[in-house]
Design a protein around this nucleic acid. Structure first.
Lengths: 254, 254
DNA sequence: CATTGACTATGACGTTACGTTATAGTTTAT
DNA sequence: ATAAACTATAACGTAACGTCATAGTCAATG
C-alpha cells in the first residue's frame, strides 16, 4: 500500500512542499503516480527519505545527499570523514570569532569608562584593524605560546564553562517561553547537561544535592535574581525541572 | 580625494559587486557621484566599510550590520552578546553532529566487518532512527519520549568518583567542626586528594587554577550553595585550605 | 581625432532549500 | 450534490553576492 504525500510528510516530519521539491530536483521521486497524477510513495521511498533526512541533519547539502544515497557503493565513510573535517573547521572559526567578540566587548567596556566619545565613534579602530589583520594572516600564523598561557588558560576555561551554562539557561528559558513542560524531554535534556557539567567541572553532585540546588534557586535571593534576570519565572521553572530530573534518577536507581 | 569603486574594493579586499550591492541595499552609499554617475567614496565611507566588514566577519547579517553601523547609540554590546549566544548554540549543534558522525562511522565499520549485506543497505536503521528521535526531542517539536541519555553517561565511573569526593568533603567537614586549622596536615592531605582527582579524572589543573577554584567556592553562588549545604562555613574553609595548599606547592617549586 | 583598453553603471539571472500564496483539478464524506 | 480535505503545477521570495550582458566613460596611444 503506497503512501500519499501527506502521509509521507507526517511520517517523517517534513512538509509536503519539501517532498515536492525533492521530486523536482530528482532527489526522491515517488515510485509511481495515480491516474490523477498523485504521487505514490513505496516503502523503499520511505527508507530512502529517512536516509536523506539523516544526512540532512548532519548538515550535508542536497546535492551531496543525492550522491550518497544514489549509489550503494558510494564511499560513505569518506563523505562522513570529510564532512566532519568541515565541521571541525567551522567550530574552530566560531571559537575564534567568539574570542574576538569577547575582546571587543571588553574593549567596549573599557572605552566607555575611559571616554564617552569613543562610543560615539563606535569601535576603536585598533581593535578592528587588529582583528582584520589577524583574520587575513590566520593561516600562515604560528602562535607564540608564552608562559602567560597558563594564567590565561584558567580565565578562558572558566569563560568556556560560563558559556556552556549560558547556552543551557537560554535554551531552557526559550522552552519555558514556548510553554514547554518542565518535565518534557527537551527541558530534561538540558537539565541533564547542567547536572553533568557540575559533575564534570566542579564537584560531585548527587541528586539530593542537585534538588537542593534547585530549591535554592527560588529561596536564595542571589540565585533568584540571576535566573529571573535571564527570564522571568525561570528560577521556579528550573526548580521544578530539576526536581523532576532528580525524581527520575532516583526512580531508576530503585 | 575620493576613491573609486575599484580603489575601495582593492583597499578592503572585497569585490566591486559587493560595493554595488551595499549601495543597492543602502548599507553603504558613496558620499557622492561624478558627473558621469561614478561612485565616489570618502574617507568616512572607508571607515564605515571597515566596520561593516568587521561585523561581517563576525557572522552578522547585513541587515543587522545596517542597524549597528547606522546609529551611534545602537546597543552594540547587546548585539555582540546576542550574537555570541547564536554562535554558542551553533557550536553546540556542531558538536552534537560530530558525535553522531563518529557513532555512525563506528557503526559502519562494525557493520562492514560483521556483515557485508549491511554495506549494501548502507546504514543500519537503528542509528538513523535513534538519531532522529533525539533530534525531534531536542527541538521539542513532537515526541515526548523521555530518554535520560545524559544521566546514563555517568554510570559506574562517575559513581566511583562521586563517592571519592563525598568521602573527602565529609572528612574535611568533620575536621572543620573539630576546629582543625585549614593548614593542618590532616586537612591538607584531603585537599591534596581533591587536587589529584581533578588532575587525574578531569583536566590538567595548575596551582593557579586550583586557587582560582577555591575562590570560586565563595564567590560563585552555585559553588557556595553546594559546600554550605554539606556544612555551614565549609566553602570559606575550603578556600583557605586550598590557598594554603597552593602556597606550599609554589614554595616547593621555588 | 579615432581607437583601444581599462573602468564604470545598471540590469537581471543563478545559487540553497524550501515557504508561501495562487489557481485548479480530485477524492471522500455527508 | 456539495463541501471539506487533499493534490498538482506554477511562480515569486529569501541572503549575499557571483556572473554575465549591455552600454556608457576616461586616459593614453597611433
Amino acid at each position: 500500500m503506497p503512501y500519499t504525500v501527506k502521509q509521507m510528510a507526517e511520517m517523517s516530519g517534513v512538509s509536503v512542499r519539501t517532498l515536492h521539491h525533492y521530486d523536482e530536483i530528482g532527489l526522491l521521486s515517488p515510485a509511481g503516480r495515480s491516474a490523477a497524477g498523485y504521487r505514490k510513495y513505496s516503502e523503499e521511498d520511505v527508507e530512502k527519505l529517512q536516509q536523506i533526512l539523516f544526512f540532512k541533519e548532519l548538515g550535508f547539502e542536497l546535492g551531496e545527499i543525492a550522491k550518497i544515497t544514489g549509489s550503494p557503493d558510494f564511499d560513505r565513510r569518506s563523505a562522513l570523514a570529510d564532512h566532519k573535517m568541515v565541521l571541525l573547521k567551522k567550530m574552530d572559526r566560531i571559537k575564534a570569532i567568539i574570542k574576538t567578540i569577547d575582546k571587543t566587548m571588553e574593549s567596549l567596556e573599557r572605552g566607555n569608562k575611559m571616554n564617552k566619545k569613543e562610543m560615539f565613534g563606535a569601535f576603536d579602530e585598533k581593535t578592528i584593524e587588529e582583528y582584520r589583520k589577524e583574520a587575513r594572516a590566520r593561516y600562515g600564523e604560528k602562535a607564540v605560546e608564552c608562559e602567560r598561557r597558563t594564567a590565561k588558560y584558567a580565565k578562558d576555561d572558566w569563560r568556556a564553562i560560563q558559556d556552556e551554562y549560558a547556552v543551557i539557561y537560554r535554551a531552557i528559558g526559550d522552552m519555558m517561553l514556548k510553554g514547554a513542560d518542565p518535565a518534557s524531554a527537551a527541558v530534561q535534556e538540558q537539565i541533564g547537561r547542567h547536572y553533568s557539567i557540575i559533575n564534570e567541572k566542579f564537584y560531585s553532585c548527587t541528586p539530593e544535592i542537585f534538588r537542593g540546588l534547585g530549591e535554592l534557586y527560588v529561596s536564595d535571593a542571589r540565585f533568584t535574581a540571576f535566573y529571573e534576570n535571564i527570564e522571568k519565572g525561570l528560577a521556579e521553572y528550573m526548580r521544578r525541572a530539576m526536581a523532576v530530573y532528580c525524581d527520575d534518577i532516583e526512580k531508576k536507581k530503585a
